[in-house]
Write a protein that binds this DNA or RNA. Structure first.
Ligand code: MN
Ligand code: MN
Ligand code: ZN
Ligand code: ZN
Lengths: 150, 150
DNA sequence: TTGATAATGAAAATCATTTTCATTAACTGA
DNA sequence: TCAGTTAATGAAAATGATTTTCATTATCAA
């Protein structure tokens, strides 16, 4: 399942990227949270541990991880992007979202994932063949009004 | 299906909002396009027809329509929000997205919507009961690499 | 027609994200 | 192990989308 180092190192090296302290730290931080963190959130935590890390690097790293499919980037409508490790071994499992259009509250749900899995993999297969697209992830969100807002 | 005025007027009045020229024009513009338009896109077209309309009002109107569930707001990762009329009678039907993580290309797809519809309405029913949430819309997106980028 | 007030638009402010560029550090290969 | 190549970094400045402010205008109920 892995080489010498942690799983993600192979992914980076595979694309010619270097293993650096900032990258290590940022991934570690993502492992330790199960929130939907913003770049600034990650920066604060990283900076706390290693004050030499800059916000720019956090953005660059999150972006790289997103392109690699290691991290999933979300926009929940509050003006800043949110990030989550896709398959967080320490944290939460794959899930989907319920988003209130008024107060922007986000709820994770993991119910009914079996049915979803079936649906998703079926669709994914057909789409990737038809559009010649390599699908690595998906997102399903339901929008509406939460209990408090309706 | 409607009162005196167009369908959307009832929706606005229902929440105590006024029917104004800018709002009329913005909705008309949304009807006429089947792109994923940004606020600036809408502004340019609106301004062309009625130069007194301001960008601020475009933002405010799109936001209001989004909260009403008349418009759906997307973030495809290129830094600006995109909007689409949810059930555009003149334009495209409900669809989902295939998004390239590298080049940010977006493809709409409408295949397999029957299966999706079945899945979605089943899940939606269970979720809205369990979380006491009024669900008005949903989005399904698949992420990966397009033909050119992989 | 009028008054109360929601809506508007111009300009300024915000603030998340990106760019620039000089410096540092990770790997390669001798 | 060491030096050279060059990707990666961070500080500061720039960008650019969206929001706020506030004086003015327009909608609509009475
Ligand atoms: Mn989540
Ligand atoms: Mn679309
Ligand atoms: Zn809410
Ligand atoms: Zn692509």
């Amino acid at each position: 399942m892995r080489g010498r180092g942690p799983w993600w190192q192979d992914r980076l090296q595979g694309m010619g990227a270097r293993i650096t302290a900032p990258r290590e730290l940022i991934i570690e931080i993502l492992h330790e949270t199960d929130d939907h963190v913003s770049a600034a959130d990650v920066y604060v935590r990283a900076h706390q541990i290693n004050p030499s890390i800059g916000l720019t690097t956090v953005y660059r790293t999150l972006d790289m991880l997103t392109q690699l499919g290691i991290v999933q980037k979300f926009d929940f409508g509050d003006g800043k992007a949110r990030y989550e490790l896709v398959n967080n071994p320490n944290g939460k499992k794959h899930h989907h979202h319920l988003i209130c259009l008024r107060c922007k509250t986000i709820m994770d749900y993991t119910e009914f994932l079996d049915e979803e899995l079936e649906f998703v993999s079926k669709t994914q297969g057909k789409l990737s063949k038809k559009y010649n697209f390599t699908i690595t992830d998906h997102a399903i969100s339901f929008y509406g009004l939460c209990e408090r807002c309706r």
